[in-house]
């Protein structure tokens, strides 16, 4: 019986085929390269498609006109101003709150259940779909605080949406400040807040600013929460303050895409070109700031 078990049928012997192993390795390598290229090709196709559709729409006339039912006269003026107002108030609200929360969690928070709960909360908020923030803004700011469908309600909603991003980025920047600086500051008799204000914040400023700019860039492009709180799709006047009704760039683009006429689709592409240029500028600024701050620290 044992003799039978020892006699393994010849077919089951492991016979490594060098050729097959090499061949499957190359095939897999090819697949990986092609996959990586696919993402890049898709990005290229997207940018090419949008710029060929939209770039000839963009001129001063397009930037300075109100939207119109006649495609030739339509422009982005009210949407651009609305985006600027919304962005300004979002920054004013979200920046101090986000940096404050980050300082608390990195420099002050004791290691207890409340701190862990707050951290878990921030992690989960980052994963909440943006449209749910819109429902929150609608219930809380538009209806309960009775602000109505105004810039301030939009900014507050957007501030809550980007708060987790600012907190995470600021925490990373603060954590990167070496402890020796803190100890030096304490050794010279500084209190905790003096230490944070004079030592930690100046060293972390680059990272904090970079993170904030990237978060604000996200706010410029968000559409869904503002539609939910009821930002309008057709505004033919300038919003002049936080309590005016408003529209923003992406909503104007969405409005044009949804119209059946072809002329409005190229207007949408033109709007996207403007939006992408704004985002590109913001991102370059963030990269430049990070680069400069890194050099100063070295």
């Amino acid at each position: 019986m044992s003799a039978q078990a020892d006699a393994v049928p010849a077919a089951n012997v492991w016979r490594p085929s060098q050729a097959r192993r090499r061949w499957s390795g190359w095939l897999f390598y090819g697949l990986a390269v092609v996959s990586t290229l696919m993402g890049l090709v898709m990005l290229g196709a997207l940018l090419f498609d949008i710029f060929t559709d939209g770039v000839r729409e963009v001129d001063w006339h397009f930037l300075s006109n109100y939207p119109s039912r006649i495609a030739d006269n339509a422009g982005l003026r009210s949407a651009l101003l609305g985006s600027l107002w919304m962005l300004a108030f979002t920054a004013i609200i979200a920046f101090p709150l986000g940096v404050g929360a980050a300082i608390y969690l990195e420099e002050y928070a004791p290691d207890n259940w409340l701190t862990r709960f707050i951290q878990l909360n921030i992690a989960n908020l980052a994963g909440v779909p943006s449209i749910v923030y819109g429902l929150l803004g609608l219930g809380l700011f538009v209806r309960w605080l009775e602000l109505g469908r105004v810039v301030l309600a939009g900014s507050m909603t957007m501030a809550l949406l980007i708060l987790p991003l600012i907190i995470v980025a600021s925490r990373e920047a603060i954590r990167a400040v070496p402890d020796s600086l803190r100890e030096g500051s304490y050794a010279l008799g500084a209190t905790r807040w003096q230490m944070v204000r004079q030592t930690v914040l100046p060293s972390a400023a680059g990272g904090i600013l970079t993170g904030t700019i990237l978060a604000l860039a996200r706010a410029i492009g968000e559409t869904a929460p503002l539609i939910t709180i009821g930002a309008l799709t057709y505004v033919a006047f300038d919003p002049n303050g936080p309590l005016d009704i408003f529209t923003v760039l992406p909503i104007q683009i969405f409005n044009w895409v949804s119209l059946p006429q072809k002329e409005f689709h190229s207007l949408a592409a033109g709007g996207i070109v403007v939006l992408l240029v704004v985002l590109l500028t913001a991102n370059s600024l963030a990269v430049y700031l990070r680069y400069r701050m890194q050099r100063r620290l070295q």
């Binding site: 997207l46 559409t223 985002l279």
Partner: peptide
């Protein structure tokens, strides 16, 4: 980083 409304258009 591209806004989702842009993907919608695309």
């Amino acid at each position: 980083g591209i806004p989702t409304v842009v993907y919608g258009y695309f």
